[in-house]
Design a protein around this nucleic acid. Structure first.
Lengths: 396, 396
DNA sequence: AAGTTTTAGACAAACGATTGTCTTGTGCCC
DNA sequence: GGGCACAAGACAATCGTTTGTCTAAAACTT
């Protein structure tokens, strides 16, 4: 940091002539001592405010400028390397040294206000605590932070009034764009929006979705090839944006394969749960009613785990008596007993994709796709096997 | 609320004469049509910017003021119900009606700059995707949103330079306080900080921690009472803030019970994983080395699930041959097979507590505790049972 | 009728940056 | 030595609010 000393000397020579000396004399130094050697004294407030250690209260541009005997604009110009301005290298270095010395951090708030850019986006999700949203958020967070963006999170628990209100609040907070996870937006917004697992087509909203057709093909073909013909299906909750698309694809593919979808073997999930309890009572009920089936296509892994528990509790073995296919491939799926056969949604990847598309749109990229489909993957583990002859015989 | 009506009546009579009509006429209307009935016409830009539907570009205070023929300050005063200002009820209503009509949303950015209050806090976590942080975040998010705060999230993957850098960035973004989850802060900050599962004592940082002593008592007593004497222990990863405290408590309680902690039965977790893979290879190794034990005290549920898988893969039954106690009580714990006996950490509650304490401190509450311990709970399920005689006999 | 109080707002100065325009002094050229 | 270009930075407006002060007119007082 010796340059500081040199500059002080040189600076004195030059700067003494710049502006009226009076101007400089009359400038106050905003609380920062001007003698280079002298450190800023901690105000001895005694017991109060003991938590103000290690990082000092932020220094503003103005204070820095006063200290340097420059005007704030010049300091700003130097620190931002604004092109087309002539500032001598010596002054530049002097400014940068001071900025380092006082650990100057520009107020992003003020800068955002001025530039009308916040480098902040809003993320809207129904919940924070379950695996699905969490993985997507993780992908989103990774990408955004890598690109120097921050994000505000809000969750709405599927309540329509909050789904209506939070986007507005987030925009008021300066969010330049929004990512909505599994959220039924009812209309567009004045900023770019990317929806993950959004089902509706809304102008201005890019949908990042799973390729549900392919997913249905993977799971149904798998069961079909194993020999299953009597399959129970779970439909997702109505509030879940994916439910409809996924169901349509299943119906579609079942038709192609010549598989029958029986109403009495179709479970409609209703409860807003993120624990296996979601799948337990509904399968239990199916069994109590004496329904016969050799496989279950679950809406997700969590429900599949609940379903398996319900089967076990009725002394049915998985996969010997009943096969189960999950959906999502959450982390515990591979460590469940038995290991879960499932359709992997590349959730983290979907989150990253959503973030990437949003940032592209923020950078003025106009030619964005209306929909972006991500391919699923069939992960065959231990919960699927050929149907049990005995079970089959009992049917019909 | 009837008083309001009275004012309306009284106000009308007074306010009709106020202000020169000329003043109001000559003001321009800043692009907003002045005829109350006439809606703002969508500028017909054709193909471009089709995403600007439903919510218009934000209207500023100035535009609203111009439209009303008032000055921005007055409008602000009305909308914020600033006390001690005399504005007739008629004008107030006129202002509010206009605000509703144009869906005025104050710029929180500008307001924050002016008031030096952002109602935003920063949340710092190692990861976003695992159950622990997710549950804590969920509690934090709930409380903050309930109180009208927003939060910025950052994750650092335990990298020290990021742990150093992000707090600064978050403060630059206007965070008024910080909640650090499982993060090894090295020093205080110029704002209130609450650490969840932080281990160090740092002035200005309130620690919200689990009562580890109690947790160790619950799990060890339980195993002890069942008859276990040869217990394997997992120590958490060194980067995990909880590891040390938890281990010390275990050592402590083991001493009180007269239980021996054998180095050859102690597993040191090293890998930075959030999947059951964390616990699989380490237990596998223990078994390969031929170590004898009748119970495992796992560092967390995820690792416990991996451990159980490793035991099974060596044809050891849980709990008949080996008992396993987890930690955390994550959602799948109750639905694992067998259902996991574990120590429940009230994670969501801890998150809420952290948020609550932070907000209290932000509101100037000085007398905050340095540490806040939350009691754990023993959840006995199916992975613990009395030790197997045969296993016992083989020992020693 | 003059003085005082109250009312209804306007005015202007912040908050902390960025950026287009102006000023002043210096160096250079012929 | 007069004109010109350029260097170095000051100045001022701006982003959208909030808030303390000020003013003109009206209303009340005696």
């Amino acid at each position: 940091m010796q340059p500081l000393k040199d500059e002080d000397v040189g600076g004195t020579g030059i700067a003494a002539e710049v502006g009226t000396p009076e101007t400089r004399k009359t400038r106050r130094h905003g609380g920062i001592s001007e003698k280079p050697g002298e450190e800023v004294a901690e105000s001895a407030v005694g017991v109060r405010e003991k938590n103000q250690n290690s990082v000092e209260k932020p220094v503003s541009l103005k204070i820095l400028a006063d200290y340097l005997g420059l005007c704030p604009a010049t300091v700003s110009v130097v620190l931002n390397n604004v092109p087309g301005r002539s500032i001598p290298a010596e002054t530049r270095e002097r400014v940068r040294a001071a900025a380092r010395k006082f650990n100057y951090q520009p107020s992003l708030l003020a800068r955002s206000l001025r530039k009308q850019r916040t480098f902040t986006v809003g993320v809207l999700a129904p919940e924070l605590s379950d695996g699905y949203h969490t993985m997507v958020m993780s992908g989103i967070g990774d990408h955004l932070m890598r690109e120097g963006y921050f994000y505000l999170t809000a969750h709405h628990r599927h309540k329509p009034d909050m789904i209506e209100e939070y986007p507005r609040l987030l925009l008021g907070r300066g969010a330049e764009g929004l990512i909505a996870i599994d959220t039924a937006l009812s209309h567009g917004l004045p900023v770019p929006v990317v929806a993950v697992a959004g089902h509706r087509k809304i102008s201005g909203v890019t949908n990042v979705v799973l390729d549900h057709k392919r997913a249905a093909e993977l799971s149904l073909r798998h069961l079909y090839q194993l020999g299953h013909r009597h399959i129970a299906f779970m439909r997702g909750q109505r509030f879940s944006a994916d439910s409809d698309d996924r169901w349509k694809s299943i119906v579609n593919v079942a038709g192609e394969l010549g598989l029958e979808i029986r109403p009495e073997l179709t479970i409609q999930l209703e409860r807003d749960l993120t624990s296996p309890e979601l799948g337990y009572p509904v399968v239990q009920e199916l069994l109590q009613k004496g329904r016969r089936f050799t496989a279950i296509v679950s809406f997700n892994d969590i429900a599949a785990i609940g379903a398996i528990r319900a089967l076990r509790d009725r002394n049915l073995r998985v996969p010997e008596d009943v096969s189960v296919v999950g959906f999502d491939d959450i982390q515990v799926a591979a460590y469940h007993h038995p290991r879960l056969t499932t359709i992997r949604q590349p959730l983290r990847h979907m989150g990253e994709t959503a973030a990437r598309i949003l940032l592209q749109r923020l950078q003025g990229f106009k030619d964005y796709p209306e929909e972006f489909a991500v391919p699923p993957e069939l992960i065959i583990r231990e919960t699927t096997a050929p149907p049990n002859k005995k079970q089959l015989k009992q049917q019909r």
